[in-house]
Design a protein around this nucleic acid. Structure first.
Lengths: 198, 198, 198, 198
DNA sequence: AATGAATGAGCCTTCATTCAT
DNA sequence: TATGAATGAAGGCTCATTCAT
């Protein structure tokens, strides 16, 4: 039972994610979810009591699944720092570009309305986690002399704000893959020791 | 009477701005505006026919008032490049921080839903304009040897993406003034000739 | 004053007639009238207090202007009975066919909703008047041996019910001019002495 | 449940019919229907999405139930032509007179507003069908020498236009049963061989 | 657990009517 | 007289939520 109902929860969250990604937050109705899941109205309420409830859960699944493992990989990894940072940025790029599965705007919509204490704010957790990962990677790179940087934390934060800016731009103005590459490259350039830049 | 009704339009737009700033775009109903303006339902429709209509007008007031003069200042200015860039960033900072009057999230919401041809997209125009201004300022700074930078355009873009990221973060997670300063400083640091950095 | 305002009343009624003819009764708003007359909202209310008021007046103008003179013509006329009946039917046909000026449907709409005492009902007055005219013409025709008919009143009523049927059909299904001719001819046929029919 | 919801559809259509009969088409709001049915606003929308939708369904129920069987009766009947025509007219009379259930005016209103291609126009179909039935009956009557008529089709059409005129008059001016009898009798009179008329 | 019909609150929009000028 | 901005009632429609089965 608990098992079965857990499976169904996951099933619903998965479908709901797609709906939020497509329509944002406010435009999504319980009916949209019901339709996407092909279950009954009453059925949905057995698992989730509102779109807010659903959205928060969708987000937390996202964070825990995606980023936790990234953290582990970053810390336990045995690849070179440069390679790992490249990998990390590739993931970010994929996230920026993915059309049909991007919760960015829905997330902005959602959190712009409610005053969530910072500690509970999954958005903040996600951002901070990413910064810490990048910082770690840069430090590793400095140790192996792949990178040069006087302020790894500042640099990590700079990178993540740029990523944030790109995400939002992608969802509104639109960005090309080339534009993203150019932007990320610009930041990375600052990490490479001068003699290697030429 | 054209005069009077024009005044009322402005009054409504002003109140509406505050509402959009507080609630974003999708969460705003005509009723919200009506309540904020303390006018009748029918009265509002005399001036604006939908929240979209309202929002676009609010935006266009914004753009024309703020940015045009900034462009002029940048081009005709006789202050030093560094001062002018500082001034520009101070404006951006004010924009990022203003709580009760920040349309960032509403704007993202709005434009994430419709496919506006890039050329018509005020968001894009605003962004591109800002980048050009910053690029120009950096180039001036290089001429006067205040700055050092090998890629003024890339640097300008980097700065504006960071600003974009900060705006969105301010509207969702929240940022402190110190955090903004730190972030902008980090970028500026990269512009200062090395010998001056110490 | 009285003179001037009387002129304006007529002007408004004339414009209103066209509007009712085009849109029926219920679909017409005071704004429609105001627009058609190119006067102000408040101005209209100085003359008429509702669309009902307007419509009733439009109708009574219609009746008095059109039919009264027809009555006179019928009674005082010196043309032959056959010619006069032909003339009368030509008028009816014009009425049935006129697209842009036909109050039939509006009238049905209007009177189907309110219980107007028969004596006040302009629709009834109009119908009865027409029947009396036709009856009179038939009787004249019998006197001059142009017509043969044992029941002039019955025949007149039959004719007018057919006209009524044609009007309504014209406004809903649509009828061609030929169809009207055929129908009216069929009725007239019954009035012509047998020997003349061949 | 398809069963149950079908029952409710019929229930609503039945109540709606009465409302349309009383108020015509344009004067009817969804709220009127809701009140008549004593269901909730939302509940009605579960079954019908507009008054147009409702009205068309009310009409189609009407047509299919009433007229189809009349056609069959007319063609397969074994009664005398005179009896059958009398029966047919009795039906028409009932239709003309029924107060609480007469869709005539509503139907006129409805179809006067939209341009329905003649072939799709149920009003036209109904009229044409009736004419054909009457024509057939007259022809039968001629065969059995009950009737005399040189133009059965013309005569049938004349009858139906009179019926149409009577319907509309009943819905607006009002007619008594006697008036209807008189009118129909007048038409029938023309069908009876002269020697029988005396 | 699951269903989906039903409810009613709430927003949208239009329009008759008023009223200060 | 004449204007037209302003109001508020009324009807349209959607949707979260409940509940009998």
């Amino acid at each position: 039972m608990g098992e079965k109902s857990n499976q169904k929860r996951k099933y619903i969250l998965d479908k709901a994610r797609a709906v939020f990604a497509e329509k944002g937050f406010k435009n999504v109705t319980m009916k949209d979810i019901v339709d996407a899941c092909e279950i009954s109205r009453g059925g949905l309420y057995l698992y989730f009591s509102s779109t807010e409830d659903l959205f928060l859960e969708v987000l937390s699944v996202d964070v825990s699944e995606d980023d936790e493992e990234a953290i582990l990989a970053a810390i336990n990894g045995n690849a070179s720092a440069g390679d790992m940072l490249a990998l990390f940025l590739k993931e970010q790029k994929k996230e920026i570009l993915r059309k049909k599965n991007n919760l960015t705007i829905a997330t902005y919509e959602f959190f712009s309305m409610r005053k969530v204490p910072a500690s509970d704010n999954p958005l903040k957790r996600q951002f901070d986690t990413a910064v810490r990962i990048v910082e770690k990677l840069i430090e590793n790179g400095i140790d192996t002399e792949e990178f040069y940087c006087e302020d790894p934390l500042g640099c990590a934060r700079n990178l993540m704000y740029v990523v944030e800016g790109l995400k939002v731009t992608a969802g509104t103005i639109g960005v090309t893959e080339e534009a993203i590459d150019k932007e990320l490259m610009f930041v990375l350039q600052g990490l490479v020791p001068d003699e290697l830049n030429n």
